[in-house]
Design a binder for these strands. Structure first.
Lengths: 204, 204, 204, 204
DNA sequence: TATGAATGAGGCTTCATTCAT
DNA sequence: TATGAATGAAGCCTCATTCAT
């Protein structure tokens, strides 16, 4: 399930993520990605069987990036509040670090899932992506649940609450632009601001 | 600037919004929209010069729907907190009412603006859409600003805060599905929950 | 056969000729012509049953313009040389006067006659146009023939000669641009130069 | 600037020239050309980015065909009259040899340059075509100029004269049909007749 | 592994034409 | 007479994908 990703494959994924981000997952063509790699599309088709598979691989990697970063800071001995705060910061920082990947996630997140039933293989990949995304969200849902149970957080519909929370934490995806001078500081500020907002929004 | 929209045009916009929501703005073809109207694409092109223009018209309408609903409840005599609460509720309820239109907004919100500079006319339309969206966001930014000024809200980067706020309020766009039994009640719950979360996230 | 042309019809023909000249007979749409008339295409379809018919009407008029101008100067009592010289001058001047119409002629003159058999009616119109054009060319062929017979002109293949002659006389269609200051003088110069060239090319 | 043309590309150009000649550059569709090649339009688009580019390539080749044929016979030691006579013959023979290409030239020569500014790339190609055509015409203009200077040719407006000359030499494009029995002889006759007419038209 | 040629399906758009008013 | 809405048939072009090398 977590097969290693070769360097060539990784390079392709980076280029794909970048193109998907810049042009949109639909508008970006395999040729665009190949061009941004300085090669031809044959190279891509040698590593990924279809555009859908490539897209799924990018999304999977996005989920795994944040999953790895967030799980590393989870400490069940902390209060839900404290734990969630660290998770939120870690999430935002990781999103900012691997921004192209997460932009792609959102583009697909809209619920608009193409039209055709595609091929069976693609179906499976999409299912896997959704599964890992859900699994990741569960990390947050678990803490929220704990916090609601012990009275720290306001008792509200769990799903609505978690969805709002994740959106808040993902909001930089919509507007963040790298390339400013004090990038590291700014990222820290954004992460802190959003983590605090997120936590505040939950408190009873 | 606010030219009337004929019945035929309005019907087309509804169908377009629905298709864009269901299939995604990129995947939905003009033929899909025509089919869902029971007519041919000629009809659409008689009223809208291009797919881009149609998309922009949908987005513009989305912005105006929420603008109208929210401005109606703004009352400057209220505290920023109270005012924003009413605005948040109104926003969520309106989004749920005209959901297809707002799904489209988000799809475009990602920042991935096609590739070619397209035609000049499209550029202008996109600019207008962005302008009206910004104008709408300003309604919220103004209250947040007031609240930060009088100490009710925590002092944070204004843009980051407002972006997070709007995302929270728009979150149902990602998951809401109509068609359940107690739709009216559920919508009210969602609106209340999100409004409270949003307000809580701001408080000092 | 020479039914009168109403003022409205004539205005449409002028606009059509102008658009055909500017944009090309294929590229110019009925809407373009209507727009240049300041009306909608309904008006055009009230007077002409199809685009092909409109095009044919323009071509017919072109042929008749030159036919009228040239026949007026034919005088059988003159030598073929003198007669042809006057005809050539008259032709060039008339072409310059009604330039848009004659540009259209050439566009169609290429021999590339679309693909579909079109409708039967169009076929008939095209045949009529060709007939009148041939009839017009005969005016020149007759003089060339007389001149070859009496030894004034070099004995050459008649068809090749006449075709070359007409092309020389029509050459301004390819490059003439109105809008200069001394338009009347320049037109006279062009007519004289070309008439002399044409005559010289024939002489034994 | 004179990049080699691959066999596949050359085959496409021939088919395109033929279709453009037969159906007209506007009426001929890319599908028509592909069908005449026995392949799909994908093949064409793999080699030429657009129909406009394909058309321009055909026109460029036409100009280069005649340029090559004519320059080979230019001999500055001859009198302008003798030199021009050889050039004229060579031009006509080459035009008859590669007739489809030259029919296309004339179709575009009309001055009716579409409507939209098209894409920037097309603009550049059109400019290049015009430049090479002008360069070719200069070969003739130079001799005419020499002949006027030394009194062999009648002193007339140079541009008008050269334009008329070229039209005379190009006239077979309008009426020549291959497929007769004595093709070689007939071509020679046509070339001689037109060359003589052309020269005669210039003489003082 | 990677390239370049080619395919085929599908999407956007234009436009001549018809029709109700 | 003239308009505005609508149709339907093409046409241009894009692009994911396959295949021979």
């Amino acid at each position: 399930m977590l097969e290693q990703i070769s360097a060539s494959k990784s390079e392709i994924l980076d280029a794909a993520a970048h193109c998907f981000m810049t042009l949109g997952a639909d508008a970006a063509s395999i040729d665009d990605i190949a061009a941004s790699l300085g090669s031809t599309k044959g190279r891509i088709y040698h590593h990924f069987p279809s555009k859908g598979a490539l897209l799924a691989a990018v999304q999977l990697r996005a989920a795994r990036f944040t999953y790895g970063a967030v799980q590393a800071v989870i400490d069940e001995r902390l209060t839900p509040e404290a734990c969630l705060h660290k998770m939120a910061q870690a999430h935002v920082l990781e999103v900012l670090r691997s921004l192209p990947y997460h932009k792609v996630i959102l583009q697909t997140f809209t619920g608009a899932r193409g039209k055709s039933p595609s091929k069976a293989a693609e179906e499976g990949l999409q299912a896997q992506v959704r599964a890992e995304q859900r699994q990741y969200t569960e990390l947050f849902a678990a803490q929220v649940s704990r916090g609601m149970a012990n009275g720290t957080f306001a008792p509200r519909t769990l799903r609505v609450t978690v969805a709002g929370l994740m959106l808040t934490l993902n909001s930089p995806v919509f507007w963040y632009q790298s390339g400013r001078g004090d990038e590291q500081n700014f990222r820290k500020t954004v992460a802190d601001d959003l983590a605090e907002m997120a936590l505040a929004s939950l408190r009873a």
